[in-house]
Structure formats: C-alpha cells, structure tokens
Design a protein around this nucleic acid. Structure first.
Length: 861
DNA sequence: CCGCACACCCACACACCAT
DNA sequence: TATGGTGTGTGGGTGTGCG
C-alpha cells in the first residue's frame, strides 16, 4: 500500500473498519486532542500517509492513549504501527475500551506490574468459588505456591486463578457467549457498567447506582448488574474519575473527566475501634469536666450538647454529626463508655488490635446465645461479654478472605487501585510529597495494604526510626516518651535540641523528626498524636487529623474546588486561628523560621540527585548453557536470543524503573538493550559465560564491559538439598555496623560506597573463599548482602511447612532481579527479619543476576 | 448439571421528625 | 433545644433457580 495507508480502502479488503467513517476514496479522518503526547509527530505521520487531521472531536477516529468513555478512543499505536508496517491494521484492535488489547505492552503498565508484583506476590486474586473453601487458610499455601524443588518451580503452572491485580496479561475478561439464549452480559454492557462506576466511584457500593445502570442498559435488573460488577467487573476497574465532595465529575479545561489517583470514599463509613474510642473518651472528658467528682462510670442518661457533636463532626469528618450521635446512642451507651475505654486500653496494652464496639443488639454475636434477651443484658453479664469480645478478637485473625478485589485498608479513603501500584509509582516523586514518598514508599504502601491492620514492623523503616524505637514495648508506649520530650521547655530556636532528643531518646531519625515538625506547622503538642496515629494506621503522615498537614491538604488548597478548600478549613482551621491570634507575633515568626530552617537543613536535600555523581548499573549473565540448563518455561517465549542473557526482561524492567525513579527523562527499549548486549558479546567466544556490566549515565549513554565468569550448570542449585548441592557454600559474615539506606541501596547504581565499605570492614578480601557480608539497617532489620539478595529459612506458623523469606523493599534492600523472579513465582516471600534472630551456622540463600541462587552459611564471630 | 443472572438478606450509618 | 422514635438504603454479603 506504500505511501497511502490512510486513504480509504475498499470495504471488502477491510471489513473491520467502522463503516460510518469510511467514505470510499476519501482520506481517513483523525482527531488528536491538543494535549496528546507526541501530537505533532502523530499528525505528521497521518498526513504523510495520506490521512487527514481534523478539528472536530466528534468526527473521525479519536486518537488518544487515554481512554475516553465518550469517544471510543483509538490508541496512537494504531498510527505508529500502521505506518511502520506500511499497512492499515485493524483499528478495532487499538480501541481502548477493548480490554483484551488495552495496555498489553504499555510501558508504564509493565513497570507498574513489575513493581506491584514485587510487593504483592502473594496477593493473588482468588476465584470466588475457591475462596469459600479457603476461609480457614489465611495464606494461599499449598503446592501451587511453595514448590519444594527447582524442578517444581520451573514447571510451575500458572495459577489457576487469574491475577487480576495485574492489569496487563488480562485474558480473564469474562464475556458471555452472546449467541446463547441466556441473558448474559455483553462486552459492551460490561463496559457501560464499568464506565458508570468510573463516573460515580463514591456510589460503587450502592444499589441505586446499579438500578440506574440497569435502566440504561434495559436488559437486566439492578440486582444482576450490581452482582455482575461486584463479582466479575470489579477486578477490571483500573481507574475512576475525579469527583468533588458531592460526587460530581470534575472536568479539565477540555471538558474531559480527569482520572483520579485514588478511589474516593463511599457514602457511608464504618465505625472503627479508633472512632469508638475517640467518641467514648471525648464524651467522658466532656462529662468529667462538667460533673467533676459527680461523674459516674458508664453513664446512661446524659445530655450531649449539640455543640459537642458539632465540634466532633467538624474535627473528625469521617462521620457526620448524626452518625456520631447515633453511634453514641445505639452503641456507646448500651456498652458503657468506660467499659469500652477499659477494653480498648487493655487491648493496646496487650499489643492486640482492639475491635470496635459491638453493642448488645449485635445479632451476629448472639444468634445462638440463650443469654440474648430482647437485646438486654444485665450488668453482671457485661464482663462476660467483654471477655467474649476479647476471645473473639483473638480468634479473629486470620480473617475471612474478601470476595471482591477492592483492596481494603484501615481507611477506605486510602484505598489504592487493585490493578495497581499505580500509586506506588506516583509516589516516587522526590521533589514534592510527604515523607512517606521516599524511596521506600512503594514497599510501605504495599505493606500497608497487605496488612489490615498494619504491622508496624512493615512501615517503621529505618529512614523513620532506629533500633532504639523498637525498645519501646508495646510500641505505642513510645508516645508517652515523646510526650515527655515535647513537654520540656524549649526556646523557639531549640529545634535542633528537640530533634536530637527525639533521635537519642526515642529513636526517631532526625530527618523524620524534622519532617513531623513541619507537618504540625511547629505546633509541638501535636507530635505525640502524629506518632500515635502513625502506629495505629500506618499512614505517614496520618491523614484527616486536626493540625497535621499533609501534601493531600496542600493539593486540596490549591485545587480551587470550594468543597475541598472548605474541607481543609474545617479540618485545620483551629491551629491557624490559634497561631495567628497569638498575641506574640514574634513567636509565630519564630515558628515559621524554625520550620523553614528544618526543611532546608534536613529535608530539601534528601533527594538531591543532581549533585551526586552516579550511573545506573546492571550486571547480567551471558550464558550459552541457558537454553539447556534452565527450563525455558522460566522465560517468556521469544524468538530472539534474549534468553541467553539471564533474566533479560527482569533486567529491562528494572533498568527502566530505575531510570524513571531518578527522573533521568528517558528509557531504554527492549530492542535497544538487546542490540547493545549482542554487540558486546559479538567479538567474544560465545561458548563461555560472561558477566556483563552495563551502565547508563545521566545523558543516556550505555556502556558495557564484559568479563569471563565460571560456568554454573544449574543457576538455581541453591534450592537443592545439601546432598545434591555441588557448588561452593558461601561464608556469610555479619556486618559490624548498620548501613544507611537510601535510593542507592534500593536501586542498583554505580554509587556503591556503602557496599564497598561494608566489604572492607567485615571481609578478608585477600581470601579465596566465596564470601558475603550480611547488611542491616539502623533499625536492625536485615536488608541484603553486599552483592546478593538473601533469603532465610523459616516455618510457616500455620502449616508448619518450610518457607523462604527475604526482607521487603521497605527494609532498604536492592530490588534484585532474581529476588523479583522468586517472589513472583511464590518461591520466597517477603518478611522483615531482625538481626537478633539470625543464628550462627544458619543456612541462607544468596542470589543475584550473575550467580543465580547459591547456598550460604551464617558465620558469627 | 452447574455457572451465571437475579433475588434476597440484614446490620447499621445517616437522616428526619415530633415532641 | 435535646432527644426518642423510626425511616432509608448502603455495604457487604448469601440464596436460588434458570437456561
């Protein structure tokens, strides 16, 4: 077809093209939104190939890589690939509503997938049918995920359930056979449902929304549409649109809906234990203030002033005034506020997670109980209920697995997308953002999502606290210490002293202490609250807390959306008033100066990569034996020779992810990488194995050097039993001091000072023995070895089965390529490992992209 | 016979009203 | 105004029977 690909072609040659758009012998028309990436180039390609670019978005093909529900957007790849292949390809295959095609080889999606897999390897979606039998099993255990031999792992079948968390590779779109006489849902109907949910994300749990959709579609009832969404489509909800506080769509200046980065909260919010505790303590405080010694515990008939409830709802906007009142009436009073406070405090003291108030109308508790009499229990039985409550709490975990795939956290408003890690990626914004948006953000976010409630070990990383902090047991008792420190007399310019006290006495890293002070705008009294909420929710900074300022709040203020600004005003107005009405204006200035100094001194330079000299690094193995020694199932099916480079695609993903993290502004394509690698081995004897050292500098130049490396006949033989293990056993010595984690430990770069220093101080580098140094961070969490990632053998507490665990990325360890492979295959799992639990003589696995997996033995000396 | 479409369940968050 | 009575429909499911 040569130069004229976009001139219309006769229908019989191309029956898949929308006929309405086809005028025989007329150029095909395209509309490209003004803000579309690469618009100029697209326009040129179209015109050069005989097409026409028009200004009417309603006519012609709408070319955009952003899905637009109104317009049936066509992926720009249609243009690129048609012109490249010099033939008009099937446009249907590029329509973005087509889930089977959408994003399959989308670069960003791959990175997201890569990242997400790394953190959620075990969070495989379960089929609803499977789920019912597995209620008892907290973990997905069993043969599928814990193969015991390398052979098993290599031949491991794909999980039977589709991993709907991963947006790409989505063959699980369940579309009914429309030729059947059942009233099944068609692909189009499914898309309408999804689209309505995207436009009404805060109503996604309601019945009415689905009734409305059903009326729109006309072929189903609201019940069935709702069930369809909740059972099958929720996994495909890869994004929603931004809505305002009332649930109306927010449009951009083009009048288009904007894709949101978080799921909004739903219309009603469940009361949590913290809500109940807050309610009870505030009511009690209020009454004690009023009554003094007259106060009697568990008051039944008290007057709650409307002002009290109003203030409560203003400061804690997760529930309305009515809801707070009703909660108090129907739950707190029957239970007794002092009973609940006692129960809650006790649970915290015991290191358990308190349950919310279950009042005596809670039928789920009493269905089979003969003690349940018209919802009333006498006072004697309250104690019994409390202990039953406790028992139930103890038995509560593992909890029932959820059927739907909307990932829940302690706060719905904090939900991230199921398919995602999109947020993980977005969080990698070193310039502006919260402290949590550091290089460990992705891992922390994932850890938080995996733990409901969160496990402090997972988010208290060593860039936040030191080992000192973990000496507080239970951890929540650290809040008292911090309170004490804060309450000492400080002069305005004593910030340094305060931060030092936090660091030395409470184990708060200086940078983090400084960050907290900026979050609370210098109002020190809020700092204990910050730590308390951090421990309880895992959110950093904790959101929606009066006086604790987050980047979300900044964004809301800048949004110019009245509802959002009003929300922020209601949340934070009091500290503002307090500070601005302060008679001592110099004090206010002093605060501001301190905050600014702190920011300059501790925070702003944190991600100043520009002044650091480094290159992105990957070391990979060229190995001619790879075609035979490693089962090809481990690799993607490719016709090229990429399989001769051990874990080629893992390397590619990591390189690009690293480039993106450091904001170097470019990426390397698969073809480019493969060509470079092939060039580098071209002059060599290809029957040998080589270690390839590949660097990319800030200008994007790729440099490769090659070095002979010994043959290894089984790169995974570390998994063999001791009898069958023929390779060298590495001696693993424990470092004499902690390393400081940073982006340069999380990502592989040429800046390896920490690693080299650890090797120098701990290893005898003259020695010929294979050896490695085991590193740990300042919170005494094991991270990795100096040139390998590491895994320890444990036993699953539920099943008693052997399990290999590796430190999570939140520890600060490198996102190694073998590590990632083993995680995604379910062969190893992530868990924090404390230095004190490492035993002399213990067997470990060491792995990297050169050696594969080898055995090591801990040597303490 | 079984998977899917559709019905139904129910505690409770939030609301409204009369007194 | 504070408060009890009570409605509504969300949020998170489970039950059932048809094609």
């Amino acid at each position: 077809m040569s130069q004229e690909e976009f001139e219309s072609v006769p229908q019989d040659e191309n029956d898949n093209i929308d006929q309405a758009l086809l005028n025989q012998n007329e150029p095909i028309q395209f509309f490209i939104p003004i803000n579309e990436d690469d618009r100029d180039n697209l326009e040129k390609l179209i015109i050069d190939h005989g097409g026409e670019v028009i200004n009417d978005p309603g006519a012609g093909y709408y070319i955009s890589k952003h899905h637009d529900p109104l317009r049936d957007a066509v992926d720009p790849k249609f243009i690129y690939e048609s012109t490249e292949q010099k033939s008009l390809l099937k446009v249907d295959n590029y329509k973005l509503y087509n889930h089977a095609n959408a994003g399959n080889d989308d670069h960003v999606q791959q990175l997201v997938t890569y990242l997400h897999n790394d953190h959620n390897g075990q969070q495989q979606q379960q089929d609803p049918e499977q789920h019912q039998q597995q209620d008892q099993d907290h973990q997905v255990t069993g043969e599928d995920h814990q193969p015991t031999t390398v052979g098993d792992l290599i031949h491991e079948k794909e999980p039977t359930s589709s991993n709907a968390l991963v947006g790409a590779n989505n063959e699980s779109v369940r579309v009914h056979n429309t030729s059947s006489n059942k009233n099944g849902f068609t692909k189009e109907e499914d898309e309408i449902i999804l689209d309505e949910v995207r436009r009404n994300p805060n109503r996604r749990s309601t019945h009415v929304l689905f009734k409305e959709i059903a009326e729109k579609i006309g072929r189903h009832t609201g019940n069935s549409v709702r069930y369809r969404y909740r059972t099958y489509l929720v996994n495909q909800l890869d994004y929603v649109y931004q809505t305002d506080e009332k649930g109306n769509l927010i449009l951009d200046d083009q009048g288009q809906p904007i894709i949101a980065d978080k799921l909004p909260i739903t219309l009603k919010t469940k009361f949590t234990a913290d809500d109940d505790y807050l309610l009870c303590t505030l009511v009690r405080q209020n009454l004690q203030d009023k009554l003094g010694d007259e106060y009697e515990p568990n008051p039944k008939n008290v007057i709650l002033p409307g002002k009290f409830l109003e203030a409560l709802a203003e400061n804690h906007t997760n529930h309305t005034k009515s809801a707070w009142r009703d909660r108090y009436r129907k739950f707190a009073i029957p239970y007794g506020i002092d009973n609940y406070i006692e129960y809650y405090d006790n649970e915290i003291q015991q290191g358990r997670v308190p349950d919310n108030i279950r009042n005596f109308t809670g039928k789920h508790l009493f269905k089979s109980s003969k003690k349940y009499k018209n919802g009333e229990l006498d006072d004697n039985e309250v104690g019994e209920r409390l202990s039953e409550h406790n028992d139930q709490q103890n038995r509560r975990r593992p909890t029932k697995k959820r059927k739907t795939n909307e990932i829940q956290t302690t706060q719905d408003s904090n939900n991230l997308f199921a398919n995602g890690g999109q947020d993980d990626l977005n969080n990698y914004d070193p310039e502006n953002g919260d402290f949590a948006n550091s290089h460990t953000a992705a891992a922390v976010a994932a850890a938080n999502r995996l733990n409901n409630p969160p496990n402090p070990e997972d988010f208290l990383t060593s860039d936040l606290v030191t080992a000192k902090f973990f000496e507080f047991q239970p951890l929540i008792s650290a809040v008292e210490k911090i309170e004490e420190i804060v309450n000492r007399a400080y002069e305005i310019n004593d910030a340094e002293q305060l931060i030092t006290a936090f660091y030395e006495e409470a184990g708060i890293q200086k940078k983090f202490g400084a960050y907290i002070i900026t979050c609370v705008c210098g109002d020190l009294i809020l700092i204990p609250k910050y730590i308390e909420m951090l421990l309880k929710t895992g959110e950093n900074p904790p959101r929606d807390i009066h006086g604790i300022w987050t980047s979300r709040d900044d964004a809301y203020l800048k949004s110019e959306i009245p509802e959002r600004i009003e929300y922020i005003r209601r949340l934070h107005v009091n500290p503002y008033l307090k500070m601005s009405s302060s008679k001592d204006d110099t004090k206010l200035e002093g605060y501001n100066k301190v905050v600014k100094d702190i920011e300059d001194q501790y925070i702003n330079d944190e991600f100043n990569h520009e002044n650091t000299d480094f290159e992105i690094l990957s070391t990979m193995r060229y190995d001619p034996l790879l075609t035979s020694s490693v089962d090809p199932n481990l690799f993607e099916t490719t016709t090229d020779n990429s399989k001769l480079f051990f874990l080629f695609d893992e390397h590619l993903h990591r390189l690009n992810f690293t480039l993106k993290f450091f904001k170097l502004g470019y990426e390397i394509s698969r073809d480019e990488l493969l060509i470079k690698l092939n060039e580098s081995i071209q002059p060599l004897d290809k029957s040998n194995s080589y270690r390839i050292r590949l660097t990319i500098n800030k200008e994007g130049q790729v440099n490769i050097s090659t070095h002979l490396t010994p043959q290894r006949y089984n790169l995974f033989d570390g998994f063999n039993s001791w009898e069958n293990y023929t390779s060298n056993i590495w001696n693993v010595y424990i470092d004499s001091e902690p390393i400081q984690i940073s982006p340069f430990t999380s990502f592989k770069t040429t800046k390896r000072d920490q690693y080299n220093m650890a090797r120098n101080r701990t290893l005898n580098l003259e020695s010929e023995e294979p050896q490695e140094v085991l590193l740990y961070n300042s919170a005494n969490q094991i991270t990795e070895g100096s040139i390998t990632n590491v895994a320890f053998k444990t036993f699953d507490t539920n099943t008693g089965e052997e399990e290999w665990i590796t430190p999570p990325l939140a520890s600060g360890c490198l996102c190694g390529v073998v590590r990632h492979l083993l995680l995604t295959k379910g062969i190893i799992n992530e868990r924090q490992i404390n230095l004190k639990n490492v035993r002399d003589g213990e067997e470990v696995l060491l792995f990297n992209g050169i050696q594969g997996v080898v055995k090591g033995r801990i040597i303490k000396r």
